[in-house]
Design a protein around this nucleic acid. Sequence first.
DNA 1: ACCTGAACACCGTTCAAGT
DNA 2: ACCTGAACACCGTTCAAGT
Lengths: 182, 182
Amino acid sequence: MDAAVACFRRRGFHQATMAEICAEAGVSAGALYRYFSSKADIIGAIAEDKRGESDQAFLRAAEEEGFVPAICLAARDFFEKFAEGDGSLIADIFSEAIRDDAVAEPLRKSDAQSVKIFMRAVEAAQQRGEIDANLAPEAVTDTLFAALEGIGLRRAFRRDINTEAAVSQFRALAERFLEPHK
Amino acid sequence: MDAAVACFRRRGFHQATMAEICAEAGVSAGALYRYFSSKADIIGAIAEDKRGESDQAFLRAAEEEGFVPAICLAARDFFEKFAEGDGSLIADIFSEAIRDDAVAEPLRKSDAQSVKIFMRAVEAAQQRGEIDANLAPEAVTDTLFAALEGIGLRRAFRRDINTEAAVSQFRALAERFLEPHK
DNA sequence: ACCTGAACACCGTTCAAGT
DNA sequence: ACCTGAACACCGTTCAAGT
């Protein structure tokens, strides 16, 4: 999987060949297919692996510094991955997951995991009065994830690698969206 | 191009073969390559063609009914495309555009066109007091586009085809984001 | 000038043979 | 049991030959 990540980073999902991944990993094609059933399966496994990597860091930050600073930290992390050239990889993951149910299913599971962690932080922040109590925690979480991914994809599309600007854009949206209303 | 759209709809960008597109269009491979320099070029041309199709409808609605109802109308339009199965096509367009500059360049041009039209509507709405005057029109536009695309992609990923729920989700975000602050 | 379609190059996947 | 890598099937692209 490390070998695949290296190849996908270098050349993108569709440009990277199985032969390259085999060479990088030092195994034969047959051996690779013993562990992954297809190329799509590899990207699925990678995505699953990366997901939730930052969940723990986010949870800690949310308790110490408040909700908005914590999601902005997570957002910076996410945008930095795009700036480093993983933008097309993430778009590929989306496109494979949307097309291929076999790829999507494990991803939906780990996504649901992240959503759950996020939701708990939203509820805690609502009790502290940081987030409008009228908002449904699950809808808030889904919307914030969608906004984060949308901003990242759009920035990659526009070749805009200014991470700080992306974080500011996300923060401005999040602050106004979450702000308690009388 | 109509033939290509039919094939991509049916089987997705990567599954559809050039031979199928040729058959559907009733031309030979050589003839196709006279008009499009590659498969990626076809999807680029399609995306360019679709963009801005709804810009005019949006502009009219924005003047008659106010900004938020008008973008919700545009959003419904967009989400309906996803529900009809164009979700993976849009993800593919993103992924090709992010990878391949030759695909991205014409798309960025027509995207900039849409952004300009949107921005004018934002400014008008700010003068009518519908949108907070402190928000920068270009940032607002980019953020709303990102949120729209992000919500659409996430819904496609989750296989959630409830268009009305998606529109409500987008409206809730837009209302709070745009709302004037004292 | 424009088109045809067989041929080419390439790549994901398999499977008979090896250890 | 597990691995190897040649072979297979398939598909995007080209170009010599045709009109």
